[in-house]
């Protein structure tokens, strides 16, 4: 899958989890930009990504992603590994 396709799906997970519109999200969106996205919510987000893509993300890298584009890249890296 193209990285833009992955990013679209990442946006969808964020939208489902935090109730924000997909249109308001970009590759540069960070947790600080989304209301309710705290450390507990981040684990829910990681689980949502894992079930959406059928992958298992390494813990520290998944905790460290700084924006949605980084998450899309991490998903792509894990898939190619």
């Amino acid at each position: 899958m193209e990285q833009t396709g992955i990013l679209d799906q990442v946006k969808q997970v964020v939208s489902d989890t935090f109730g924000v519109s997909v249109g308001s999200l970009t590759a540069e969106t960070t947790a600080n930009d989304v209301e309710g996205w705290d450390s507990v919510a981040h684990l829910i987000f990681i689980n949502g990504i894992e079930s959406a893509f059928g992958v298992r993300l390494p813990m520290q890298q998944a905790l460290d992603v700084s924006n949605l584009g980084d998450m899309a890249k991490l998903v792509q890296d894990v898939r190619q590994a």
Binding site: S39, V40, H42, L43, I44, I46, N47, M59, A62, L63
Partner: peptide, 14 residues
């Protein structure tokens, strides 16, 4: 285990 290391949760969100 990530739920414990990352957020001190005793079980997985799953």
């Amino acid at each position: 285990p990530r739920a414990w290391y990352g957020a001190k949760l005793t079980f997985g969100q799953q």
